[in-house]
Design a protein around this nucleic acid. Structure first.
Lengths: 225, 225, 225, 225
DNA sequence: CATGAATGAGGCTTCATTCAT
DNA sequence: AATGAATGAAGCCTCATTCAT
């Protein structure tokens, strides 16, 4: 109120506990990751905030300092999981052009391997994306579809490029087939989620997936001719 | 559990009028069907017993005369939905032998059409089987996989027969591919669940599915050589 | 119970526990009264639903079978208290015409006595109306003012009648004074609320209230002369 | 931190710079005033310490350096409000003797005007004293009554003096009537609290209040005689 | 001193399940 | 057999208060 406060009072130069920039973000991540695990383990509805807090090693109240509601946490968990998922698939080498069906197959197998590896470490990743997301909520479901659409789009581009380059049959409905590429990965993915994936079985899945895809896309051997 | 509870009350061994033997069964079905609808509409967790009872036109207490718990109802709902689902697919003509890839394709398209029709009437059918079942519970999830395995088995048989008859490539890993047949149906199914299935789109899905499958199974044109 | 339940099922003739018409209303009253007591004793905010339920001798869940929320209970409690309050004041004899200031005073004293008696039995009555209502909520506050306005209106009517009949000074602003009649009752009321009202003190309040009012309304002595 | 926490730390007996002795007191006032505003705006129970701190422009923790508990703040807020309230009424000129009923009336109108002016600036003042105080707590309620008693006492003195000087009827029970003076101010006050006080209405209130009071106190015109 | 992060007790509310009629 | 009333456990969320920095 009065002027004679020497200088301070107005500038309020770092008084009190320093605000620890970044703490908030770290806490959010910490909580989201914990939520990710317990949601995946028990399902969203069956998980209590208490569970999340305990797993994160914080009090329940703390959770609410960083998220408005349980539902908001799920949103972030989905983003987190989707981010990881996409991260596994979308690597730089994905962007390099593909010039033959074999390359495409290799690339797919590559991705599949990476995914398998990731899923081995984080078996919950897809359960969360696939199951919890669809069960939770129409809105989240839509976002999941968005993610799928995004992937399909990328795949469709590759296939179109392949058509131009001649290693994909011209008749292929790329917009459709892209979704089928994803669908063809699912059987393997599901087993991975369930944890029943020995290397042998994994190979069979890879072979089958690639075999079917190759057959579907391959330009008919200029038979006879 | 078993009958010998002195005075019964549990089994009520036909004393007096046998009552309508089927009455109890009818009530159960009535409740299961109601639960099926409301579970599919709102999800298992978000549905209250009250909702089920109201939809069934009975009191909540009555529900508990026929089912031990909410969870048990879900079991039965799953069975109900699975039964309907299988019923659509497993018709007599499925049992008739298949002698060519075209026949196989036709048969698939046939099934797909029947499924599409069913889903149009009962859009919740698959949502329940696919989404609610997996979200609810490990045990139910296992049963869902069992159902899938059962279907895959049937398909594998057909394909093996096809190999013997020569209209399926010998290299095909039938045990695996059968799962992929199911996987290839999924993109269309998902759209059906979401209700975004115009006839045109439906056709594209059918063409794609059958196209891919045919390519995958087809015996290479007597490459002559 | 009725004989021929042969087919019925449509008419559903009193099956199950008879719905006990009136039970709901009784329970509501029971809960409202309990709430009335505990709210008055501890204040609305400091009272828990558990308190209300315990006082009513029911489970907390039961409370929510009859009221949507704690706030809704308060509404009903207010109505209940206001009803009782008005009931004490608005008796038949209040409607009989008044022909002199003395009669008016007597009538007021009468009401005051009845109120004092009521307050002795239910010391919380006014605390609830006056204090809790105003503290709780703008809306409830408005309703309280409405009640006051209603009373004032009645009093104003009597005074206007008195002006016509000549026992109230013509200069009196009846619309205003009516509120003051209520205001003049308040000192006594407050003491009653606080429970510090011996008969002697009560008399002094009555005398003072009536004395002031009489002086305010009285037509100047036989101005004639 | 510092080693010599021996005893000090609490009193901090002027070591080094005496600090600004009044600083603590200023902080307290600052917080009390903020609390006063938010309590009045939202009610005591609905206000959080966070609200108070934010309004005061300090951290929540800081609040607890100056007050033991939320409740203690309310105490001080009450004192603050009461102090302001009394300050408006108890001015020097109040102490000057009063020699006639007219003077008394004038004085009352004067006070009323000052109060009206104050309430216009600080509409929350009385809401806090009247409503929040009574709702919060028996102890605070008692203090409120104490305040009222204090005012009544002062008024009673004036009236007694008036009796001696002859401008107040001898029959007047001054100890009682003093409370009624306050009561008669209430209708106007309430409207002021509610903010529904146009100048016209204000005049009517003033006229009515003074009119009633004058009638009640006035020595009967030594009629005839 | 000041601060904001952390916390856990506790409140309101929902709902699966039991039970008297 | 059927019903709806009753219940209490449990969940989400708020917030007064404590404490490390």
């Amino acid at each position: 109120m009065t002027g004679e406060t020497t200088d301070a009072d107005v500038v309020r130069p770092r008084r009190g506990r320093p605000k620890q920039e970044g703490l908030a973000e770290r806490r959010r991540e910490q909580i989201v990751q914990s939520a990710y695990h317990v949601f995946a383990a028990n399902g969203y509805e069956s998980t209590t905030i208490s569970d999340v807090a305990r797993h994160a090693g914080v009090g329940q109240g703390t959770v609410y300092r960083y998220f408005e509601s349980k539902r908001e946490i799920l949103d972030h968990v989905f983003d987190y999981a989707a981010g990881q998922f996409v991260g596994v698939i979308m690597t730089d080498d994905l962007m390099t052009p593909i010039d033959s069906l074999d390359e495409f197959s290799d690339r797919l197998v590559d991705i599949a391997k990476r995914m398998a590896a990731t899923l081995e470490e984080q078996p919950d990743l897809l359960k969360l994306i696939l199951v919890e997301a669809s069960a939770a909520d129409a809105e989240l479901n839509a976002r999941m579809l968005g993610l799928e659409g995004f992937l399909a789009e990328a795949i469709a581009n590759v296939m179109q490029d392949g058509q131009e380059k001649g290693w994909v049959r011209a008749e292929v409905d790329t917009a459709m087939y892209s979704h089928y590429v994803i669908a063809l990965v699912m059987p393997g993915v599901r087993h991975a989620i369930l944890g029943t994936l020995t290397p042998t079985v994994s190979d069979r899945f890879a072979t089958a997936t690639v075999g079917i895809l190759a057959a579907a896309l391959r330009v008919p051997e200029a038979t006879a001719s």
